[in-house]
């Protein structure tokens, strides 16, 4: 399948976080392209500890969910602590099928339901980038999950319900910009992992794709990305927000989205941001959850 053309990475004014300042500049063009893919896919967020001077991609980030706390693993090429012994086939299987090299299922806290549809070219470039990272010996931490959710073999059942492997296919009825936006939002960006509500089994409520979650008991909810809400913003406001994490009024977004802005959206080219916005604007409007 023809990969969706990756746009050239454009430098964004935002300084890289301390964690990103690793190793020598990338010389391999594939790894350089992969760096952009890694940003678009937001790998850093879950695969890096949330502290100053954390080693990028060495794992340790706690992801709290209603099912328990997951800890992002080390994905640097360290042979024992990281994924240094993996082959590219192992990597492809992890992203495309949600399987470990030993055949066990990954918990879908790892957003392979989104990543599965990554293009061949992007997958190869991303692998080249991860191989070029300096290896870190940081040890992984076991997930801390509630009973039943900690039973890895049950993930097979979850996948049967909610996981459909397959590649991203551009919709010929839409223009290339909207298709590129779809790919960035749904495949690499995995925006729906937070912006689509989930049912009690953690499966996405597909009828409310990207429609956000209401104000919950212990959180402020997640914004609706369909035109119902987005129509309140013009393109310049949305672009500015995705680049700075702030509205034109200086209102700062929450820390979780702020992290997405600094790791992902602020690093995307203007063209890619425009594609994402075009895709979101083309979604069917869904009313806010009550």
């Amino acid at each position: 399948m023809a990969p969706v053309a990756p746009a050239a990475p454009a430098p964004v004014g935002k300084p890289a976080p301390a964690a990103q300042a690793v190793g020598a500049p990338l010389t391999d063009p594939a790894a350089r392209r992969g760096e952009y893919i890694a940003s678009a896919a937001g790998c850093l967020g879950c695969h890096t500890e949330a502290k100053d001077k954390a080693v990028a991609y060495a794992g340790g980030r706690a992801l709290k969910t209603p099912f328990g706390t997951f800890y992002g693993p080390n994905i640097t090429p360290h042979p024992a602590a990281g994924i240094g012994k993996w082959s590219e086939v192992d990597f492809a299987r992890a992203l495309r099928e949600g399987l470990r090299p030993d055949g066990a299922h990954y918990f879908p806290a790892f957003p392979y339901p989104s990543f599965a549809r990554i293009s061949e070219a992007d997958l190869r470039d991303l692998w080249a980038y991860l191989r070029a990272l300096p290896p870190s010996a940081r040890q992984n931490q076991a997930h801390d999950l509630g009973f039943a959710f900690n039973l890895r073999f049950l993930v097979r059942f979850w996948k049967w319900l909610y996981f459909t492997p397959g590649r991203f296919t551009p919709d010929p009825k839409r223009n290339a910009t909207v298709n590129r936006g779809d790919y960035l939002v749904n495949v690499l960006g995995h925006c729906g992992e937070c912006h689509t509500p989930r049912n009690f089994l953690g499966g996405p409520k597909r009828a409310r794709h990207l429609a956000g979650t209401p104000k919950g008991k212990s959180d402020g909810g997640v914004s609706n990305l369909t035109p119902t809400n987005l129509k309140k913003w013009d393109d310049a406001e949305l672009t500015g927000f995705l680049q700075s994490g702030m509205t034109a009024d200086g209102d700062v977004t929450g820390e979780r989205m702020g992290e997405v802005v600094s790791n992902t959206t602020s690093r995307l080219s203007a063209q890619d941001l425009a594609s994402m916005i075009a895709y979101l604007r083309a979604l069917p409007p869904i009313a806010d959850a009550p």
């Binding site: 976080p17 956000g212 104000k215 959180d219 402020g220 909810g221 914004s223 820390e255 989205m257």
Partner: peptide, 21 residues
């Protein structure tokens, strides 16, 4: 520039915990 991120974090952290979307 070094301090800017720390301030932004306290704004965002509070907005996440105590403000509805």
């Amino acid at each position: 520039k070094a301090q800017f991120g720390a301030v932004g974090k306290t704004c965002g952290g509070c907005h996440d915990s105590f403000r509805a979307k």
